[in-house]
C-alpha cells in the first residue's frame, strides 16, 4: 500500500488527463474565487450598491485568482484528485462565507 502511494508520488507528471484537470480548475476555480470575494467583501464591509471603494476594488479580485487556480490545476496527480481537492476547498470557503454572513448580518 505505502509502496504504491510512494511510487505514484514519485512518478513524473505529464499531460495525461489535462482536460479533466483543466475543467476542474475552470469550474471550481470560478466558484472558489467567487467565495473568496464574498468573504473579503464581508470582512471589508463592501456594500451591494458599489458605493464603497472595497466593493469596487473587489471586482478585480476573482479574475486573477481564477486564472492562477486554472494554471495550477495541471499540477494535480489526476482529474479525480483535482475535482476532490478543489471541491473540498470550495466547501471550506463557502462554509466560511455563510458562517461570516450569519455572524455579521
Amino acid at each position: 500500500m505505502t509502496d504504491t502511494v510512494q511510487e505514484s508520488r514519485n512518478a513524473p507528471l505529464d499531460g495525461r488527463g489535462w482536460a479533466g484537470k483543466g475543467l476542474a480548475g475552470l469550474v471550481l476555480g470560478a466558484t472558489l474565487a467567487t467565495g473568496l470575494m464574498g468573504i473579503f467583501g464581508l470582512l471589508f464591509h463592501a456594500d451591494a450598491q458599489f458605493r464603497t471603494a472595497a466593493a469596487q476594488i473587489l471586482r478585480w479580485f476573482p479574475g486573477p485568482v481564477w486564472g492562477v487556480v486554472l494554471a495550477l490545476s495541471f499540477l494535480f496527480r489526476s482529474p479525480v484528485r483535482a475535482w476532490t481537492t478543489l471541491g473540498v476547498l470550495n466547501g471550506v470557503v463557502w462554509a466560511a462565507y455563510l458562517l461570516l454572513r450569519g455572524i455579521l448580518v
Binding site: 470575494m37 467583501g41 464581508l42 464591509h45 451591494a48 458605493r51 464603497t52 466593493a55 473587489l58 471586482r59
Partner: peptide
C-alpha cells in the same frame, strides 16, 4: 455576484 454576496449599505463610507 457582488450584489448577491455583499450586504446592502448600512453606513456609507463614500
Amino acid at each position: 455576484l457582488e450584489q448577491n454576496l455583499f450586504r446592502p449599505a448600512l453606513s456609507v463610507e463614500s
